[in-house]
Design a protein around this nucleic acid. Structure first.
Length: 521
DNA sequence: CAACGAATAT
DNA sequence: CATATTCGTT
């Protein structure tokens, strides 16, 4: 095979240096793609006709890690031969023609992904994932083993600062696995990855109708992701797609799939001419991620249902749905903040049981790096701070303590005009974080945190050191009675999720260990 | 009136 | 429980 799991393990700076075979008749487009790829430090071999590509693949097996092949009306047949010829090489098809059946055919024939042109950086950036997938799915079953190996990879990258625990790594992996830069069109990778070849039929069709309302059986497919925008969505939402006219060239019949981007569970409605999308919205992780992304994009201050709705571009979803979801999240956030609040008070004296043993005594004011705390927010990948917020923080009171009732600051449940953020983003000096907020894998149940963890594959576990429940409870209640009590202001360290997103946007796909600023030598 | 957030209902 | 629906405000 082209690239084995072992290769990957030893690969420094993966995916830099990944060798990409590029076939594009249009030299303009080829050049463009090439330069983008090269910016990401992929190594590109381009060719302009299929024969060349074919011989490159056949004669120098192992020379490429991944191929990007353009499909068009003219090379239609040859390209499929190419597809067939390269078993181990992950092949990404690309085209400027939006033709569903062609896409399907490509995928069915083994292409790992179909990217519609133009190929943005975002689309190209993650092509390495296919290499990984191929490599691991060839060695072992794609399931656990591969993840295990990945974990090992991560661990090896980790610079042994003792910070992350197994579970944390796991959640990294989860993050990585779940993390597709939104707005790009590449999420299909995951689906493909999960279900491997040929399963598109089930994958796609179910979007239409398969979802009968035999709910309650939670067996119901989670895979009704609302993701596959550009591939299939020709709904009203998307900007005009003139490409449709090209269909004929490819001999496609009328569009088989119509209401793609819609929420699942609409099976019921269909019959009635009107859209009676009354079915419950299932907030799948994917859907939720869209939501999250929308919120992030808007910035917490402006994340209101209608705007979120616009951004999510999910057909069938209503403002109410969003509002409801938002509310739920919001509440969750509030609750946590309050708890965390309390934790700051309780954390004056570091518990010995914590892995903070090797942390040195904390400085009262870590004026350095507001962001250095480890992800308190691991639990809240949701609310990324917006960058319009200056990095200097108002810390209330000395370390570990804040003057609690402090009049004159706005209520935390109104929209923040100042720094404080409505969502109650973490507000303590970053250096505190390690004391109480590691995503420890405490089984959340013992801490009454059940609401939080189970959803959306978020990293689990929160506050290791909780005072007795009733105490917390009491204080929480008190806090609720005094909404005017200000929260300390501060910055939230970016969530692992957003960090990873950002990194991947910058072409860094592995997680540098140093992002965890909390470790201490 | 529409959209919001909170409260309440399912 | 997760979502939907209702309610009072803006």
């Amino acid at each position: 095979m082209v690239c084995t799991a072992d290769d990957l393990q030893e690969w420094k700076d993966f995916p830099k240096g990944l060798r990409v075979l590029l076939l594009d008749r249009d030299s303009c487009s080829a050049t463009e793609i090439r330069s983008k790829l090269e910016e990401m430090e992929y190594v590109v071999y381009s060719c302009t006709d299929e024969k060349e590509a074919l011989s490159a693949i056949l004669n120098t097996p192992g020379n490429f890690h991944v191929a990007i092949l353009e499909v068009c009306a003219r090379n239609y047949d040859e390209i499929f031969k190419l597809l067939g010829a390269s078993k181990d090489l992950p092949i990404i098809m690309t085209s400027d023609v939006h033709c569903l059946s062609t896409m399907m055919k490509c995928i069915a024939l083994g292409a790992v992904e179909f990217l519609l042109k133009p190929l943005s950086e975002d689309k190209l950036r993650n092509i390495w994932q296919h290499v990984i997938h191929k490599a691991y799915s060839n060695t072992s079953k794609p399931g656990e083993e591969s993840v295990a190996s990945l974990m090992q990879l991560q661990l090896e990258n980790e610079d042994k600062n003792g910070v992350p625990e197994d579970m944390e790594i796991l959640s990294w992996i989860q993050d990585i696995v779940w993390e597709q830069p939104e707005g790009s069109d590449d999420k299909s990778q995951l689906n493909l990855g999960a279900s491997r070849q040929g399963s598109w039929e089930s994958g796609d069709q179910m979007n239409c109708s398969m979802e009968t309302d035999c709910k309650d059986k939670d067996v119901q497919s989670k895979f009704v992701e609302t993701t596959s925008h550009d591939l299939v969505c020709e709904g009203p939402i998307q900007e005009g797609q003139p490409q449709l006219s090209d269909k004929k060239k490819f001999g496609v019949e009328s569009d088989p799939l119509a209401a793609e981007n819609s929420i699942q569970g609409t099976g019921v409605n269909q019959s009635a001419g009107s859209k009676a999308k009354k079915t419950k919205v299932d907030w799948t992780p994917e859907l939720h991620r869209k939501f999250v992304q929308a919120v992030e994009q808007l910035g917490i201050d402006h994340a209101i249902p209608s705007k979120i709705l616009e951004l999510m571009k999910v057909e069938g979803l209503t403002r109410h749905n969003i509002a409801s979801h938002l509310q739920q999240k919001y509440r969750m956030q509030k609750k946590h903040v309050m708890q965390r609040e309390e934790n700051t008070r309780w954390s004056h004296y570091p518990r010995s049981t914590l892995q903070t043993n090797h942390l040195k005594p904390i400085m009262a004011y870590p004026s350095y790096h507001p962001n250095c705390g480890i992800s308190v927010s691991a639990v809240y990948p949701t609310w990324r701070q917006t960058n319009d917020r200056p990095p200097n923080i108002h810390v209330c009171g000395p370390f570990g303590y804040r003057h609690w009732p402090q009049p004159g600051i706005q209520p935390w449940n109104s929209y923040a005009r100042v720094q404080a953020d409505t969502w109650g983003c973490p507000v303590m000096p970053p250096s505190h974080a390690p004391y109480f907020s590691y995503p420890q894998l405490v089984s959340a149940s013992q801490h009454n945190m059940h609401t939080v963890n189970k959803s959306y594959g978020m990293p689990q576990g929160l506050f290791d050191l909780q005072p007795d429940e009733e105490v917390v409870d009491k204080i929480v209640k008190e806090a609720m009675r005094q909404p005017w009590s200000p929260l300390p202001l501060g910055l939230k360290p970016p969530s692992t999720e957003s960090v990873l997103t950002e990194l991947s946007k910058q072409g860094i796909s592995t997680v540098p260990p140093q992002i965890d600023g909390s470790r201490s030598p």
